[in-house]
Write a protein that binds this DNA or RNA. Structure first.
Length: 547
RNA sequence: GGCCCGUUGGUGAAGUGGUUUAACACAUAGCCCUCUCAAGGCUACAUUCAUGGGUCCGAAUCCCAUACGGGUCACCA
């Protein structure tokens, strides 16, 4: 009885070899410098901002080098599967214009290195495991959960390093005859990798972000195939898939750093070259006095849906993440305002190796700048698209009269330094509602210094009778004339010199005009608002204050 | 607990032994501009790079120790 017999017993239906698969998936014919990256989420119904940041890095590296960015669905844990999770990931990637070059979605396979869904790759994994068994680098383990728990307790009580290694790896000592007999007997088993490592020995590992690391060798016999005798664990699938799919750069969270010794040993066992690794820092969150990993349960901003729902332009989210990815991005972008972030050359060595707090204030700032630079058409398109998904009220406002809506968006837009007051599309309604008669039903007027009803009436009446104009050149001069006539200072400097000579100043007069028209004390350029509203509607709103 | 990673201001950070009296951006505060607001302009904001030692003519930058924070030790990825 040999290892081959054992392998044959476990996988009788597997006839292919590793070489067969290497022929099926030949090395990619791309330039030497081209990178192949992958986004490999597990479909748990949620897109985490940290994962998304990694996807951006994957995407940028691939685009930087004329390489390939592909999506792989890591669904080896059936228990955590959530319906619709794959759709959510695809939608998210599409929303951000990050459609992968290769992927598998709804029976559609794009790319020659699939299947891109791990649960459809069983035969491949089995072939590779069969090979490992036949060369004596993997074996069946019959330990029950109880036995393993007992082992762990024992290890803890004796303060020895926990895990299935060395003398604790009971099943690696079983003879082949014994193994075969127990399998024939129907005993449940998993397949474990047989480690040759020595924990006390170190090896050099280069992480593209952190640089040279001295890590302990792995000596744990990890499970590579679960007891369903079908699906592999992450560690094994990672090695097989990234080899076969030709991944050159693996971008993943820092939490994986402690498993690289396992992965490296497995790559070695097959004689495969391991990819480059970029272990990204965690995104953190300040919680009181301490910082912690941003959490799906506690922090809504951990989910990408948070940004979609509030209506941040996708580029704002991307750019804010780019500043974390490479902090020199912002300066580069200022120097190259017309270039896409995909032209920015990502450098893992410039990435911070400590966790970063994601700053929502910064996001707002970036977003305001981006929105201020959009044309009214672009803002209209984008905000309308958003409203259709997230805001019925904004949607109906827009649909009532798209041209009117655009004219409002255009206030203080087409100028050298455009207005920056919208950070996200959910802000819009609260900024423009008073421009709509059917929404305009104010209960509170934010009057300034002038509150006397008679005075307000007088200002409004006089304005409409004698000084009204929609000509932007003339507009403010007329307001000044109005101020003069009613005893308010039209010149601020004069007013500051002798405030007692006047009832107030031209700002007070303008405030009355503004509040009586919008109920708001803070609005964009009043002349532009008046132009959009038109004389009739202005008169209608003003006349309600007449005495 | 073992192993690994990290620690520059409120935040992201630049910085790799000598024009660093520590860039830049956000936030905050003040002033200016101004019909309000949003902007914009100007100014302020770390005598100091977690702490303590050391190496050196010279250290945020190199070395050691300590402290603190994080990750990981699953048939989860």
């Amino acid at each position: 009885m040999t290892n081959k017999d054992l392998a044959e017993l476990i996988f009788p239906d597997i006839n292919k070899t590793i070489e067969d698969y290497e022929k099926m998936y030949p090395r990619r014919t791309i330039e030497e410098s081209a990178a192949v990256t992958r986004f490999a989420p597990s479909p748990t119904g949620y897109m985490h901002i940290g994962n998304f940041m990694q996807a951006i890095i994957d995407f940028v590296i691939a685009k930087n080098t004329n390489g390939i960015f592909y999506l792989r669905n890591e669904d080896t844990d059936q228990a955590r599967q959530i319906d619709g999770a794959v759709e959510l990931i695809m939608d998210n990637l599409n929303d951000y214009n990050m459609t992968p070059d290769e992927y598998e979605f709804k029976d559609q396979v794009i790319g020659n290195y699939g299947p891109y869904i791990q649960s459809k790759r069983k035969e491949i994994y089995h072939t590779f495991i069969k090979h490992l068994i036949s060369i004596g680098r993997a074996y069946p383990c019959f330990c029950t959960k109880e036995e393993l728990d007992e082992m762990r307790e024992f290890q803890e009580s004796r303060k020895v390093r926990p895990g299935y290694h060395g003398a604790f790896a009971k099943c690696r000592k079983l003879s082949i005859e014994e193994q075969i007999e127990r399998i024939k007997n129907g005993d449940a088993y998993v397949i474990r990798f047989k480690s040759n490592g020595d924990f006390d020995r170190k090896f050099r590992f280069i992480d593209e972000v952190k640089g040279l690391l001295m890590l302990n060798e792995n000596d744990i016999d990890d499970i590579i195939m679960k007891s369903d005798n079908q699906l592999p664990t992450y560690h094994f699938a990672h090695v097989v898939d990234d080899y076969l799919m030709g991944t050159t750069h693996v971008i993943r969270g820092e939490e994986w750093l402690s498993s690289v010794s396992k992965h490296i040993e497995m790559f070695d066992a097959f004689g495969f070259k391991a990819p480059k690794y970029i272990h990204t820092p965690l995104i953190l969150k300040k919680d009181g006095n301490s910082t912690r990993k941003i959490s799906k349960r506690k922090d809504p901003e951990a989910s990408m849906s948070y940004y979609s729902e509030l209506g941040y332009p996708t580029m704002a989210v991307v750019e804010s993440l780019m500043t974390i990815i490479n902090s020199n991005y912002e300066q580069w972008h200022d120097a190259n305002p017309d270039k896409s972030y995909l032209d920015f050359e990502y450098n893992p060595k410039k990435m911070s190796s400590s966790g970063a707090l994601y700053d929502l204030m910064k996001l707002d700032d970036i977003s305001k700048n981006i929105i201020s630079k959009m044309t009214k058409e672009e803002l209209y398109e984008d905000s309308y698209k958003w409203s259709k998904k997230y805001s019925d009220s904004l949607k109906s406002i827009i649909e009532k009269d798209p041209e009117y809506y655009k004219s409002i968006l255009n206030i203080e837009r087409e100028q050298v330094k455009p207005r920056k007051d919208i950070a996200k599309y959910s802000d819009i309604e609260g900024l423009i509602w008073y421009m709509y008669d059917d929404l305009y039903n104010p209960t509170d007027y934010e009057w300034g210094n002038v509150t006397d009803k008679n005075e307000i009436s007088k200002i409004l009446k006089t304005y409409m009778d004698k000084y009204f104009t929609l000509d932007s050149e003339e507009w403010f001069n007329k307001v000044k004339e109005l101020a003069d006539e009613l005893g308010y200072a039209s010149n601020m400097k004069d007013y500051k010199k002798n405030p007692d000579n006047y009832k107030g100043n031209v700002a007070d007069v303008a405030t009355v005009l503004r509040v009586a028209l919008t109920s708001q004390s803070r609005t964009p350029d009043l002349c532009q608002i008046m132009n959009i509203l038109g004389k009739d509607r202005i008169l209608e709103r003003y006349s309600s204050f007449y005495k």
